Amino acid sequence: MPTPIDWSLLQSFLVLAEVGSLSRAAPLLGLSQPSLSRQLAALELRLGQSLFERHSRGLTLTRAGRALLPAARRMREGAQDLALALAAQEQQLAGTVRLTASEIVSAYFLPELLLQLRQQHPEIQIELVASNEVENLLERSADIALRMLRPAQSTLVARKLADWPLGLYAHRRYLERKGMPTRATMAEHDWLGFDHADQLLRGFAAAGFQVEREFFCLRCDQQIVLWEALRAGLGIGVGMQALAARDPDLLRVLPEVEIPPLPLWLTAHRELRDTPRLRLVFDAIANVWGTA
């Protein structure tokens, strides 16, 4: 009888197959890149075949990798079904809730709520996944998610909490140095934007401004870094109005440029809403931000 393959190795294989990059897969798995490389090497040694081809842009599946993928996915589905069945039966309040939210929400909005939750229910531990990647609740990457888009899966409970308005902001020091921007002088100013993500490019285009990546003097996909760069006076950037209101030195510019608000959605797996501690955390978040 063949020796069973360690499920953790197959989990790593699946994430690598789906994201195509060691650097992107490692944080999703909670591993360092060297550890993930060793896991992949161990699995390939166990199977006696290479599962990925390495190239400058990442990883692509070999023929053997493509053959393994359907079976690995079936194993994951079985593990998910088992985990959900066990979790739905758990009625104790004490335990862990895995919550995911964007970096900005995790850093600037959640701490106060989590403090209140901790004071009221110290028996509940929170695992906070601060990530702009959309975690898959069906795969138990998280129990509850705060996201800026509505989930498509029918097996998820989804509640829209609010529409968070956005604006263009600059620090007072920047405006003293460069002056107040107008539509006619936008190109003369320093702008802060994303590196690989294209949301701002699409947003500028929707507002009637066709710009390229080079339009932004500082590009970074870490939203907290961009926000702190804005607060340091490096340039003009997009921010949540509720967050900008906390800093009196941040001034709104170009208010006539309409920016669609960010919808805030709270989601959880339908079965897990019957687990008391998950329901408690879900309702605590909804009570704070549930204005819609």
Rank of each mutant, 00 (worst) to 15 (best):
A101T: 12
V134F: 08
F216C: 07
R57S: 00
S12E: 04
L201D: 02
L251T: 11
D221Q: 05
L149M: 05
R202Q: 04
P255F: 07
S102W: 11
P181E: 07
R118P: 01
I224N: 05
S141F: 15
R270M: 11
I124Y: 02
K160M: 13
L262G: 01
W191C: 09
L113W: 01
L156F: 02
Q120D: 06
N287A: 14
F109A: 08
S50K: 01
T182K: 12
E44T: 04
L234P: 05
M180N: 12
V225G: 06
R63I: 08
A17R: 00
H121E: 12
A229M: 05
A25V: 01
W7R: 09
Q125R: 15
S21V: 13
F109R: 07
D6P: 09
L200F: 15
Q241C: 13
L86C: 09
L68R: 03
L146K: 06
A229H: 03
M186L: 10
T100A: 14
F215K: 10
R57I: 00
V19K: 03
V134R: 14
W164Y: 09
L266S: 07
V288M: 09
L82T: 15
G237H: 03
L99F: 02
A142Q: 10
R213C: 01
L22F: 02
A67S: 15
I236Q: 06
A286D: 10
W191P: 04
P151E: 04
H196T: 01
I224D: 07
L272Y: 15
L272F: 14
R73W: 15
R173M: 10
Q125S: 15
R98S: 15
E188S: 13
T155P: 10
G290Q: 14
H171Q: 08
I236W: 08
E188N: 12
R273V: 07
A197Q: 10
L61G: 07
M240P: 03
Q119I: 13
P276H: 11
V253K: 04
Q33C: 01
D190Q: 09
L192P: 10
Q120N: 13
I236V: 10
V97F: 08
Q210Y: 09
S141V: 14
L29A: 09
A286Q: 07
L61Q: 04
R159W: 14
E77D: 11
M186C: 14
G58M: 10
A83M: 14
P151D: 06
L138P: 12
A207L: 15
T60V: 04
Q33A: 04
L16H: 01
L29S: 11
L264A: 07
M186R: 12
L218E: 13
A232Q: 15
